[in-house]
Design a protein around this nucleic acid. Structure first.
Lengths: 229, 229
DNA sequence: TATTGAACATACCAAGGGTATGGCCAATAC
DNA sequence: GTATTGGCCATACCCTTGGTATGTTCAATA
């Protein structure tokens, strides 16, 4: 019964580059927390929230539930941390892509294209789009979303809209942003599930471009959103 | 301990209008199944899938788990039946609204408006939009969807697009339909959650009208989707 | 050196989905 | 009319799993 009861407080690979402001103990702690998050992200992506047991997560991280519940208040809280991490990464990548150019229309195209790419990533799809609203509840889902990716999309939409019609108010911008955000999220699923994803992505871009061109044309003709009433 | 062990095979209210083709036993059975579905729909809508226990469902239907597992293979199968029921009802209501008029553009507006209304119903929101993809898995979700509501939306989109540009193929129609479907689904959540839902719904309609007008304008100018390449 | 508390491990509990089994009675056969 | 069968459902039980309660270790501070 010499069951190897190793790994007490001795991670197999101690974080080598000693972080200045942290004690050894704090570094070990941060390491286990980080590992838990990473393993959870992987398993949640692969099997979904309900089908991923905490036992599987702690086994993957080579710790026990005691460690998990020390760092997180429960399964949902852990999921929320993973969710935020994925959201933040996505928002940042979109933001970076937009800074490549200065022209509003080109920024918009770059941003939307990057968003379309992001929304095809398995992790973002599963954790944010597919299971986010269900696991977090729509309220919290939306709160999180509005602190990262959605806001980026909203900025894009605002730039496009106001380039042609400076009279649209913030609420109207938010409305258009909601529509675009929903459209692109659905597009991501559609593209990924298609028999020829690349072809599907091209069609999405084509359709979005057509819609944007329509908006642009209306703007050039002096037709304002308010004129629709 | 005279615990009333009633309701063996004696429903409190036997289905009065004797259905011709069914025996009494079959009618009782159908009644039990129907009740289970109705109770499940109610509880799933109010508390969500995960937070609704089978015990709560069978208690609400005044039966036991034996009855439930006789009619359904499990919790998810029951959910799927509820899902189909909700989807069918929604598709039918949209379809009915569209038959009110004959003009393609008016049909489209009527259809989209009805869809926007449907997508605000608590049952459709919770069971189809919010938890559908998560509970059924995206694959099955999409299969179900394409057998009812999505197809109706697709027909609307096809009519609008081809009214201006007869050259768009089926795949392109499907692409636009995906975008619109996603946009409207997200819109439903947005509207319901808004402080002033009516006002929010008006803005959605305004935005959609603007986008459609853009499409219409392009079509009138002879600009085709393929020209975007 | 003593003490404290962060960072875990271990053992346990209760809820809930699913299963195995059996009983009852309407429908059918004879 | 009697016997038999199978659909319909109830009861009892199992097992996974999220969560909790308690114990243990050891680095950091006094």
């Amino acid at each position: 019964m010499a069951k190897s009861s190793v790994s007490k407080l001795v991670p197999k690979v101690p974080p080598l580059p000693s972080v200045p402001g942290m004690s050894r103990r704090q570094q070990f702690s941060a390491s286990t927390k980080k590992t838990l998050i990473e393993v959870a992200e992987k398993l949640f992506t692969e099997h979904g929230y309900a089908s991923t047991s905490l036992d599987a997560i702690v086994a993957g991280a080579e710790v026990t539930k005691g460690a998990l519940y020390h760092h997180f208040s429960g399964k949902q809280a852990l999921y929320e941390v993973v969710f935020e991490k994925v959201e933040a990464a996505t928002a940042q990548s979109i933001d970076a892509a937009m800074r490549e150019t200065k022209d509003p229309w080109e920024q918009a195209r770059a941003g939307l294209r990057t968003f379309l790419e992001a929304v095809q990533q398995p992790t973002y799809r599963r954790i944010v789009v597919q299971e986010g609203p269900s696991v977090l509840g729509y309220q919290r889902y939306r709160e999180q979303e509005e602190r990262s990716t959605f806001t980026v999309v909203e900025d894009i939409v605002a730039a496009v809209l106001r380039a042609g019609d400076r009279s649209v108010d913030d609420e109207m911008v938010a409305t258009f942003a909601r529509l675009f955000f929903g459209a692109m999220s659905a597009a991501g699923e559609s593209v990924t599930e298609a028999s020829d994803p690349e072809d599907a992505a091209d069609r999405i871009e084509l359709a979005v471009t057509y819609l944007l061109t329509g908006v642009r044309t209306l703007a050039e003709q002096g037709v304002r959103v308010e004129d629709m009433r």
